[in-house]
Write a protein that binds this DNA or RNA. Structure first.
Lengths: 174, 174
DNA sequence: CCCATTATAGTCGGTGTTGACTATTCGGTC
DNA sequence: GACCGAATAGTCAACACCGACTATAATGGG
């Protein structure tokens, strides 16, 4: 996925880091936004290295386990810029696993479907509350924007489920 | 992915079909909603067969290539019902590749970022128009609901991008 | 009569991702 | 002084999914 390369290049553009730092940052700051695991990060770092977009030097302090410090190259910065523009233009059409349930909903008694949708709504509310309580992120203004994005779509989902439940209710009464 | 098993079980619950029919239906009716490819469908059908949730009989007509007709079993129907309830309750938290770009947006001159966002907006509009023109689906009312779902979220995305562009514009003027 | 298309069945290798695992050193706690 | 957790580095097998490929028979257009 290109967005993962973009993320790593972006992190290294801000400053060179060693692997542990990179994975720490992702785990602590981006966990819900872009879940990328350690092993994936290492794979992609290798690939970026082979492509000459990042370089790596070993940094040994005393007897400590050595750190491998990754930096972005000039070619990497060019690529980064292009990837970033592509990403901003991109409309990533998602396919929703939930739609399968929607599609087949009429195979279930309405009462059970409604119960399931109520549960879903509860989960959405929980998630909305969680994100609304997240404090502002100082270092990267982008983090706030991404969270706002998340929230907007969660709320749209909530509204849609509410509308759907309304429709089902009137249909039952007919 | 469980939703793919659910889809196949649901299709076979409505009626037994042979592999070609299944893939045809998905390709013609669900292409944008749940993009599942032939090879994946066969893999999952095999797995469902091993688990005893579907059965298969060969149906040879004359000299034609034989058809393998898949049917749902009783155990399959039980599983289907459970999977459907799970799916309706599910809140599938998506991770948005676009958020990587949002996150790193401040690495790009504002003019370029705005241009990219305008392009993105254009793509959203195209997609909205496309879906708004899709006629009602007679067989499965669920298809209409799923499309409505899609549209709701697309419009939420559009609104969010518009808001973001508004923010950027005022920020530039400060 | 030939050829392209459609109806029918898959298979198989490659890609991206992850979870679980393995090492080593240092700085504290019991 | 023994032991645990955090800091540091990865590796590797397994999984889901897909794209490209292979086969055969009937059918219809030229």
């Amino acid at each position: 996925m290109d967005s993962r390369s973009l993320l790593l290049l972006g992190m290294l553009k801000a400053q060179s880091r060693h692997g542990y730092q990179i994975n720490e940052f992702i785990e602590h700051n981006l966990r819900d936004l872009i879940p990328m695991k350690k092993s994936t990060a290492y794979t992609i770092l290798d690939r970026l290295g082979e492509a000459g977009l990042v370089s790596m030097v070993v940094d040994q302090e005393g007897n400590r386990p050595p750190r491998k410090v990754y930096s972005i190259t000039e070619e990497g910065e060019r690529q980064f810029r292009q990837l970033l523009k592509d990403n901003l233009e991109m409309l990533d059409l998602k396919h929703f696993e939930e739609d399968v349930g929607i599609l087949l909903m009429d195979e279930l008694p309405i009462a059970e479907a409604m119960a399931a949708l109520r549960e879903k709504l509860r989960r959405i509310e929980l998630e909305v509350n969680k994100y609304e309580k997240v404090p502002h992120h100082e270092v990267r203004p982008g983090v706030d924007m991404a969270i706002d994005h998340h929230l907007s779509l969660l709320k749209a989902e909530r509204d849609w489920v509410l509308r759907l439940m309304g429709n089902l209710r009137t249909k039952t009464q007919v």
